[in-house]
Design a protein around this nucleic acid. Structure first.
Ligand code: FES
Ligand code: FES
Lengths: 158, 158
DNA sequence: TATATATCCGACTATTTTACTCAGATATTA
DNA sequence: TAATATCTGAGTAAAATAGTCGGATATATA
């Protein structure tokens, strides 16, 4: 089991997509700016998300990515799994053979833990997150910041 | 959040201690043999477990380690925490400041997940594990293997 | 049709962490 | 005093993380 920046970035980016899904495809450059994630790194992550058919892409100007399903049926567990951060907490990856080919002393504990985490994360969809008030607040703040920044850029140009 | 061999080893070793607690202090050499964990690595892990007052040591021949509390009041979460494998799944370690000093889009999700995992792992004591039938079975098998090996060594000597 | 915008793709890299090993000091029992 | 253990610190190979970089390809628009 591991959950690092990679998995967190993937979920953050997917949530950003869900939040801006009404305005056509979202470019990685936009997500990069809003969420402060390196563009090149996002490209790597989205290659994996695309392979797992969680997003689809539109190339060229005005293009970007969009969710390949409705946000109601994309679950957090899938996203984390897609970028290779397994939710499995066992050493044997479920095989039950990590102590001389046999089940080790703590296998059942890790197995139960994995089940617990999996149930939790596969019970939460992107739509669920979009609807949460605490997350709505953060999204609103980020959008306001983005608009303010945009206006400043325009002011500098003129 | 990460759970790797380090944390699994720590829990396995502590459970081994709990299982053999009736027969005085247990040496790391014994745990090393039974659980197939490098002795030097165990020494490192037990230095941390000792600092966190989960075990106490007896030096010299016949010495070893014993649990510093009854197994009923040592919880899995404490053990994992003691060897520096934090259960916290947030990037900000709870501070809520990983996006320009502010709360990021997914903070609340990781916060909830951490709570979930923590509740699960801090609700399980070493005594709980010792009592589980699936774990008893593994422990019995390991003890039988150990006795068989011991007899073989004696046979070779004679 | 040129240009700008975007995704795509592969290779490379610095840093960190993991999972160890090794050498030796120290304490205790017999 | 010899054997058995815990203690301590330093070092290290391999893997994973979190990126960077250079360039190819597709497409909308002027
Ligand atoms: S974790 Fe599955 S057998 Fe050890
Ligand atoms: S994870 Fe806590 S603010 Fe981002």
């Amino acid at each position: 089991m591991r959950l690092t920046t990679k998995g967190r970035y993937a979920v953050t980016a997917m949530l950003d997509l869900a939040l801006h899904s009404h305005q056509g495809p979202t470019s990685l450059a936009d997500i990069s700016k809003r969420q402060e994630i390196s563009l090149s790194y996002l490209e790597q992550l989205f290659a994996k998300l695309r392979k797992h058919e969680l997003v689809s892409s539109v190339r060229g100007p005005g293009g970007g990515y969009k969710l390949s399903r409705e946000s109601e049926s994309i679950f957090i567990a899938e996203i984390i799994d897609a970028v290779n951060e397994t939710i499995d907490a066992t050493n044997c990856h479920g095989a039950g053979n990590c102590h001389k080919g046999d089940v080790c002393l703590t296998h059942h504990l890790w197995s139960d833990l994995s089940e617990q985490i999996h149930q939790f994360l596969s019970g939460i969809s992107l739509a669920d997150l979009v609807e949460r008030n605490d997350i709505k607040a953060v999204a609103d703040r980020q959008d306001a910041q983005e608009r303010a920044q945009h206006e400043q850029v325009l002011a500098v140009i003129n």
